[in-house]
Design a protein around this nucleic acid. Structure first.
Lengths: 236, 236
DNA sequence: TTTGTAAAAATGGTCATACCTATTACCAAT
DNA sequence: ATTGGTAATAGGTATGACCATTTTTACAAA
């Protein structure tokens, strides 16, 4: 049994418009077809096209001008990747590297700030989460699951302790994109053991409120990923 | 003569729905009225309501479930502030502080990374921008402009040198929110002279590729803002 | 020829209504 | 008590008409 995928029309239209922008290599400021034309080309009703346009506008991909037309506003590969099958593997790896750098910045900062406010209870929760995670991974090992394991809950927990809702949101967004693009990476680079050990190092550093140690631990955790990306990019 | 504000209906509906969520203190998972009810309450057509819902959904404020209903997904004060007159000044200052902390993280990181890749030409552009900016400010001084001066181009320039498009986008978003909320802050805290001097310090540190100096310069620039926020919050 | 203005065409914004599809709850049959 | 169908509810889509703003066109005046 496989889950039946139900594609809503307005989302399909979003994809189509993005793919139109890409395949015609439209640049910022370029004009898109009119609502009526889009509707007739794609064989959907105008309200559906308008719903799709509102989604695109909310994501700042397009800019709609009353009486004038619909214009490309920003080419956002991160957003595009949510709607399009990935074309160029090299571009994908580049994005992944950019994401990893963002993670390095964010997770380091969050961990340092978290260390300033974390209660013993919260530290304990970090340890608990990590050990139960580790246990789960051991169990999963027995079934030979092929899909790459991507779980960023641990990192999110730290940002939650920090408590800045704006950065928490940012972090979640990064993770979402990370999961989307991660499959391109060689998963062997990051064994479960290394991963687990890295996490423990990070928690300990937070517990000791040791800024230097935090920076080192997070950096060592993510730098591996970044250099893996860099290496793969250069191979292509 | 004042510019006539032409409020598009679907945007007005977005505001109304947000204000409905706030005034009824809805929490995540709570259900909103049906599309048809919203349309009749607000006295607009259902397609307009749907367009507004698509905007809200794209911003992850709501979650629409076919056949089931419309549910609150996330309370995002940052997004809300774009649509609502700010109610509570204390909450606003708190948000501003969170934003400032985000800026501290982002601008420090961007400056350090920029220093690694900046060409002499780019460094020169930073100096040029800053001096021309400073000149403009001197001139503006003569006209007693009342509105607080908010210009974050300088910071954006640095992030551009770094070149990570994902973080650049994030930075722009922060700045947009910053401008929206900034008016609450006592502008006297940051005279043009201090500002200009801080910027020069930052450029010099980047030029010297001196990580410590960069951290110090950016931190000293933004910490002033953060502590101003903290002070004001405690007063309330 | 150039310029200003008004009409017309193009294009996004809104409305009303009808019908399709998914979810949920309820009730009957087992 | 469990199963399975059915109706009510609520979101999804389609049409076609009309409104509002912008751009273009056409023509008249200078």
């Amino acid at each position: 049994m496989k889950p039946i995928k139900k594609v809503l029309l307005h989302n399909a239209v979003v994809s189509e418009i993005i793919s139109y922008i890409q395949s015609n290599a439209l640049k910022e400021g370029d004009k898109l077809p009119t609502e009526r034309n889009l509707a007739s080309f794609l064989n959907v009703s105008r309200p559906i096209v308008r719903e799709a346009l509102k989604i695109l506008e909310a994501n700042e991909i397009i800019k709609i001008k009353h009486g004038s037309g619909i214009f490309v506003n920003k080419l956002d590969p991160m957003f595009f990747s949510r709607y399009l099958a990935n074309d160029d593997e090299k571009a994908l790896l580049l994005r992944l590297k950019e994401l990893a750098e963002s993670r390095l910045m964010l997770e380091t900062f969050a961990a340092i700030e978290a260390s300033k406010v974390a209660t013993p209870q919260q530290i304990k929760e970090l340890y608990d989460h990590e050990s139960s995670e580790n246990l789960n991974l051991q169990l999963m090992d027995e079934n030979d699951v092929e899909k790459p394991y991507v779980n960023l809950e641990f990192e999110i927990l730290i940002t939650k302790i920090y408590g800045n809702p704006f950065l928490l949101d940012f972090h979640k967004k990064i993770n979402e994109l990370w999961k989307l693009n991660y499959t391109a990476l060689d998963t062997n680079s990051f064994s479960k053991e290394i991963r687990h050990n890295d996490h423990i190092q990070i928690i300990m550093a937070i517990e000791n409120k040791d800024k230097k140690a935090i920076e080192k631990a997070v950096s060592s955790h993510i730098t591996k990923i970044i250099s893996a990306c860099t290496a793969l990019i250069e191979k292509k």
